[in-house]
Amino acid sequence: MPVLGHTQYGKAEVRVVRLFRDTDPHGIADHNVSVALSGDFADTHLSGDNSRVLTTDAIKNTVNAFAKEHGDAARTPEMFGLVLARHFTELPQVARARVNLETYPWRRLDAGGVPHPHAFARDGSHVRTTTVTRTADDAEWVVSGIRGLTVLKTTDSEFHGFLTERYTTLAPTDDRVMATEVTAQWWHGTLPDDPDAAHVAVLDALTSAFAGHHSLALQQTLFAMGSAALTAVPGIGEIRLSLPNKHHFLVDLSPFGLDNPGEVFHADDRPYGLIEATVRRDDTPDPGDAFDPGQGW
């Protein structure tokens, strides 16, 4: 006999752009918000009784209204996610609210060498991600992150001494191009007072570690990057990193009578190696539902 398992529902990808005109220079926050609610909603599946269902249209309207009513919170995705999650878990039928945000950075334009007070350009280097989860018993988890940050170093990367067997064809190297597209998620054991500053600090730590680390394997560089993030922001309990190899293969130019001493490469997007790991403090508590399969990477 069929039985109902876990359910959740909500509104996905509510795109809200909040301008801050009350200060000079102006500010901008650009969020893509998805909300998922779970709890006592079995009747709508089993009998069509919708009396406990908050409409997804109301969820969308709440996101937009809160961008106005909670303007200070809307400046940062972590705080905006928290006020939304706290609101939705006030409904007695909601056992858990999860708010996912993608935040698109903008940078201020210059005019005559001076930052313009109200002109911006989209910064396409990465997308800032945030997931806030709250339960009806007031447990909260805030997970910040980035995705789509492509980084490359032209040297200081080796890969050798690996296992060889019948199907191994890769040649060892002591000098290679190393490139990856960083996806990172870090769980705040303690939410910082200034989430924006913490985000910048983690981003700087990740990129500085990538640049400055002499790599014997992407796995080793991943651990160095994660360790640097934990050092930069003490309130982070753990960070998860997903680093796909963005392979660059040296092009054979010998048919044309040309030497190619590590100058001309072919960038190949697949298949690719995929390196993933968690770096956590040895004394950090288990984050529990912060990284459950509903969110995972």
Score class of each variant (00 low, 15 high):
M1W: 12
L4M: 01
G10L: 11
G10K: 05
G10M: 13
K11A: 06
A12V: 10
L19C: 08
D22G: 04
H26M: 04
H31T: 00
N32L: 15
N32H: 06
V33N: 01
S34M: 03
S38Y: 03
F41V: 00
D43I: 06
S47G: 11
S47H: 02
D49E: 12
D49F: 10
D49T: 10
N50F: 15
R52C: 13
T56E: 02
A58P: 12
I59Q: 15
H70S: 14
A73E: 10
R75Y: 00
T76F: 01
P77T: 11
E78I: 11
E78M: 07
M79C: 11
G81A: 05
L82T: 14
L82W: 10
V83A: 08
V83K: 10
A85I: 06
H87L: 09
E90S: 14
L91F: 13
A95D: 14
R96Y: 01
A97Y: 03
N100F: 15
N100V: 08
N100Y: 15
P105L: 03
P105S: 05
W106D: 08
D110G: 08
D110K: 12
G113Q: 10
G113P: 00
G113M: 06
P117I: 06
H118L: 06
A121E: 09
A121I: 02
D123K: 04
S125Q: 14
H126G: 10
V127H: 12
R128Y: 03
T130Q: 06
T130E: 02
T131Q: 01
T135H: 06
D137Q: 08
D137K: 09
D137P: 00
D138R: 14
D138L: 10
A139D: 15
W141K: 09
V142M: 01
G145P: 00
I146E: 04
G148V: 03
V151S: 07
T154L: 07
T154S: 08
F162V: 05
R166A: 12
Y167A: 04
T169F: 06
P172T: 04
T173S: 03
D174F: 08
A184S: 12
W186E: 01
W187K: 11
L191I: 13
L191H: 09
A198I: 09
H199V: 04
A205E: 03
T207S: 05
T207I: 04
S208Q: 15
S208I: 13
A209R: 02
A209M: 00
A211S: 14
G212K: 09
L218Q: 06
Q220E: 13
T221M: 05
M225E: 02
G226S: 08
S227E: 12
A229C: 11
L230K: 02
L230F: 11
G235M: 06
G237W: 01
E238G: 13
E238L: 09
E238D: 04
I239F: 13
H247W: 00
H248S: 01
L250T: 10
D252W: 09
D252K: 07
L253F: 10
P255E: 01
F256V: 10
N260M: 00
G262V: 14
A267L: 09
D268E: 09
D269F: 14
R270S: 12
I275Q: 11
I275M: 01
I275C: 02
E276Y: 08
R280I: 00
R281P: 07
D282N: 14
D282H: 13
D283F: 03
T284R: 12
P285V: 03
P287Q: 03
P287I: 03
P287T: 07
G288Q: 02
A290P: 05
A290R: 00
